[in-house]
């Protein structure tokens, strides 16, 4: 390879001479992985120095999306220009691969890190060698929890990919110019994703932000009630909107009003033709009858079970 100044846009060609990519890389972080990083930072915040860790996840072959599914903190030591990554890194990667064999290392993260040559060195570590992202480019996720004065702010997270810059190759090493760890970082779009299962949980957390301990709802009926209350609020909003439209007092500059309007448009058009009132009434009644039947039969089975276990003990005890 010819030694030359080498600056490549990482979005167009990957850092390791792979065929050029036409699509932009994007990063999706699972909410659980992100929360885990935040929690571990909270846990470690008394220690000095920076926190770095490994990101695990998967890449889709068709799209250029990288999913970050899991993370763990890696202990390291810094000594001037030298740094050492603890060997536990490899063990943890092996453990994660056991529980989810399809996942691999996709990159690394740092918390409250300032930009210096260290970042290049670590990025080099995660891009090459065993348990690295090779042959794919590594993702670097930077998370800022504090502003420059050291007080906490709303977390800011950004993902980057990097291309090496500077001389490398045989000639460079011959001329003693080779320098590992020089990169150009460019930001890639990032989003947080979660499954429907996680969503209800996240919403529950969000509703209880003020509590130091979030209770887990014990009762499904209570959850139904809270959902119904939410529905009530939405209906009120809708009625309010419709009233305003009728009276012509709608604020056309409010983006929220536009959203409601669009929502109504898409949902009302696609509604199937409604059944007649009688049909609806009879199908709802029969649904109630069915539910009552289930309720009754299940209670009957329970009672029978209770009686049987009491009788068993009595009969057996007599002997």
């Amino acid at each position: 390879m010819v030694a030359s100044l080498h600056i490549v846009n990482p979005n167009l060609a990957s850092a390791f001479s792979l065929p050029p990519r036409s699509n932009t890389l994007s990063v999706s972080i699972h909410a659980s992985a992100l929360l885990q990083i935040l929690e571990s930072s909270y846990f470690d915040q008394n220690k000095n120095g920076r926190i770095i860790g490994t990101l695990l996840g998967s890449r889709s072959e068709e799209t250029t999306e990288v999913q970050v599914k899991d993370s763990f903190i890696v202990s390291h030591t810094e000594d001037g220009d030298e740094f050492t990554i603890d060997s536990s890194q490899r063990e943890f990667v092996a453990i994660h691969k056991k529980s989810s064999p399809r996942d691999s290392v996709v990159g690394w993260f740092s918390i409250n890190s300032k930009v210096d040559s260290f970042i290049g060195l670590v990025h080099d570590f995660f891009s090459k060698g065993p348990d690295s992202t090779h042959p794919y480019p590594a993702i670097y996720l930077s998370i800022q929890l504090c502003d420059e004065s050291g007080s906490f702010v709303e977390p800011v997270f950004k993902a980057y990919v990097a291309s090496p810059v500077g001389c490398y190759g045989a000639l460079a090493s011959h001329l003693d110019l080779e320098k590992a760890g020089s990169f150009v970082f460019s930001e890639v779009p990032t989003k947080v994703i979660y499954s429907a299962n996680e969503k209800s949980l996240l919403a529950h957390f969000k509703n209880n932000v003020v509590e130091p301990k979030v209770p887990i709802p014990q009762n499904d009926t209570n959850q139904l009630i809270s959902q119904l209350n939410k529905l009530d609020v939405s209906i009120d909003q809708l009625i309010d909107y419709v009233d305003k439209v009728i009276s012509g007092s709608l604020d056309r500059n409010d983006v929220k009003n536009d959203e409601i309007g669009r929502f109504l448009l898409t949902n009302l058009v696609s509604l199937p033709t409604s059944p007649s009132k009688e049909e609806l009434s009879s199908s709802i009644s029969s649904h109630i009858q069915d539910s009552l039947m289930i309720d009754y039969l299940a209670s009957a089975v329970k009672t029978q079970l209770d009686v049987s276990s009491k009788l068993m003990n009595l009969v057996q005890d007599d002997k």
């Binding site: 992100l34 709303e154 996240l202 919403a203 932000v209 509590e211 529905l231």
Partner: peptide, 28 residues
């Protein structure tokens, strides 16, 4: 219970969109 870190609480605000999504109301 679930531990609520003030930090995570702050982070959640940014993470979850406010919209009342139809998906989470499937119980209704």
């Amino acid at each position: 219970t679930v531990r609520n870190l003030s930090l995570v609480g702050g982070a959640l605000d940014g993470l979850i969109p406010d919209d009342v999504s139809t998906e989470s109301e499937r119980i209704l």
